[in-house]
């Protein structure tokens, strides 16, 4: 057994042992849920919603005749578990343990590459691609594309709240009254111009095919052209013109009572000198020597201060993310700390 494997075994045994000891002496790693039954009656365009605590019973059903019904499971704090409608949740408990073990699996990379980390990484890649695709579908493709291309079907199945605009309000009304069939209504209601992004989209997906890859350059060119057009304008206005304007500062500042404002004067002078000297440093068409070289060296110093500040802020940010993960392990999973008092009275 090599040294690495020995440390792995020790880590596993110590960690597992600690978990066993914790399990034997106290509770942790449990999730609870609150059941709720929702009864809904819709009349005249308004919904009457009655959320009854707990799972449906014969009485609650009888109290809401003709109502649509579904149940909801809401997250509950362990401290609430004496509430009769709060129950131990297998789904959330398994989820919590998955989350904890995946967190540890990613952490394990710090010790060295290992199958646990690779497994977690593989899941991450799959889930995040899937997640983005689903969000893009429901909130992007449905909302932006299908709502215009096939508005009748979209309103019928996905977005009942979609408001028919004047172009297809009539078609929708006729479809509702049975005057117009599904396909005919759809054909009448569609906005043909929406075919353009659809065609672009299909061309883009041709990238996946081994032969038709070149077709994807059309939508790609559109995308690049649009990006260039948008960015050119905003960068010129916001990051060039406005930045130069903002640097045109008074170099001697007086306060409102006409007394000399030393602090603001120094700040303004520093900003003007800093911007100019740093710009000089970026100017590579001229040899950096003599006065020019001196100014450019001052510019480097300003940039170094800037990078130092950025470094400090970056470190700060990374540490916070790290702290949040340890908080998750100590609080949600192991129940060692309870900053949100979610287990008060347990």
């Amino acid at each position: 057994m090599n040294e690495n494997n020995r440390v792995w075994w020790i880590l596993f045994l110590v960690g597992g042992g600690a978990l066993l000891v914790r399990a034997a002496t106290t509770e942790f790693g449990k999730s609870y849920a609150r059941d709720q039954t929702v009864y809904v009656t819709v009349e005249g365009g308004t919904a009457e919603v009655d959320a009854v605590p707990g799972l449906p019973t014969a009485e609650s059903d009888a109290a809401h005749p003709d109502a649509a019904r579904w149940t909801r499971s809401l997250a509950a704090d362990p401290g609430e578990r004496d509430d009769p409608h709060v129950r131990f949740s297998w789904a959330d408990t398994i989820g919590l343990w998955c989350a904890a073990l995946l967190t540890l699996a990613i952490f394990s990379f710090l010790f060295g590459d290992n199958p646990g980390y690779r497994l977690a990484e593989a899941i991450f890649v799959g889930v995040s691609a899937g997640y983005a695709m689903i969000a893009g579908f429901w909130e992007g493709i449905v909302q932006l594309l299908l709502a215009k291309l096939i508005p009748v079907a979209t309103k019928e199945h996905f977005l009942p709240g979609l408001e028919p605009d004047p172009r297809w309000a009539d078609d929708w009304a006729r479809y509702q009254s049975g005057d117009l069939g599904y396909v005919a209504a759809e054909w009448a209601a569609t906005t043909l111009l929406s075919l353009v992004p659809l065609v672009f989209g299909v061309m883009l997906l041709m990238r996946l095919s081994p032969k038709g890859g070149w077709i994807s350059r059309w939508p790609l060119a559109f995308f690049i052209g649009a990006t260039a057009g948008l960015r050119l304008i905003v960068h010129f206005e916001s990051d060039f013109i406005r930045q130069i304007q903002a640097t045109l500062l008074p170099l001697i500042v007086f306060k409102e009572d006409n007394s000399f404002d030393l602090a603001q004067t120094l700040a303004n002078v520093t900003i003007v000198v800093g911007v100019l000297s740093s710009l000089v440093y970026f100017f590579f068409s001229k040899e950096h020597e003599g006065v020019f070289g001196g100014v450019s060296r001052l510019g480097i110093w300003f940039l170094m201060i800037t990078f130092g500040a950025s470094f400090g802020y970056t470190v700060m940010g990374r540490i916070t993310l790290f702290a949040q993960r340890l908080e998750f392990l100590f609080d949600d999973w192991l129940w060692i700390i309870d900053p949100l008092q979610r287990r008060a009275g347990l």
């Binding site: 992007g140 353009v196 672009f200 989209g201 559109f222």
Partner: peptide
């Protein structure tokens, strides 16, 4: 811009 945004959403499908 509208088409640009739709293409951006479709790019997730391409990515997947």
């Amino acid at each position: 811009v509208d088409w640009f945004n739709i293409l951006a959403a479709l790019a997730f499908v391409l990515g997947g």
